[in-house]
Write a protein that binds this DNA or RNA. Sequence first.
DNA 1: TAATTAACTTACTTTATGTAAGTAAGTATA
DNA 2: TATACTTACTTACATAAAGTAAGTTAATTA
Lengths: 107, 107
Amino acid sequence: MADTNICPKFEKALSILNKRWTGLIVFQLLNGSQRFCHIESEIGISGRVLSERLKDLEKEGIVKRTVYDETPVRIEYSLTEKGLALEPVLNAIQNWADNWMEQEAVN
Amino acid sequence: MADTNICPKFEKALSILNKRWTGLIVFQLLNGSQRFCHIESEIGISGRVLSERLKDLEKEGIVKRTVYDETPVRIEYSLTEKGLALEPVLNAIQNWADNWMEQEAVN
DNA sequence: TAATTAACTTACTTTATGTAAGTAAGTATA
DNA sequence: TATACTTACTTACATAAAGTAAGTTAATTA
């Protein structure tokens, strides 16, 4: 990316949020801690990309991966404080969608 | 994309906003009407993709393309009412970035 | 006349995503 | 015991999206 005049924090934030699936994953996790397969089927993402995204989001401190040492192990993903702080962003999008998106068939 | 339980308007909105560059383009146009080359150099996007995105955003009714019939012609891009309504979304992201993003080198 | 600018488009390369199958560990079912 | 199934992934390969660089058209300036 070339040099810009835009606030680097803002730009960094957008580079995370602009990635495909990130918004939906965070939105989904706002409902609470969830397992890999559950997120996968709820939002219709492929396992390959979900795995990748969750790692990215973990690295960014937005998502937390917790291993419950039962048998068999249970692994759950949840939002950190930083991740929860994205709720107003998602709400703003929801609000915009309600006011401006036409109800139409998706394809 | 597979079936989900998520509000279709919200999902549609995310499918637009989640696309690379969309956020930055809208953010840039919040400063007012601008020409192609200006947007291109300000946000560091390639002409190829900018052209594509502006067409998408126009189709979605978020951006308006105006041709001023001078010589040489001047073409300007601006936000529609629907596009301007995205300001709270960008503000929410800016706010989150200010509170949670660490200042660090962008590679 | 040559060089420059704006607004793109085209051709080609690289990166991201999708699809499908595979793996490892454990569970349930016949 | 053997077969099938579940979870949480990973791997290999195919397709789609984005980046890079050069080209186009029309007009302007040096």
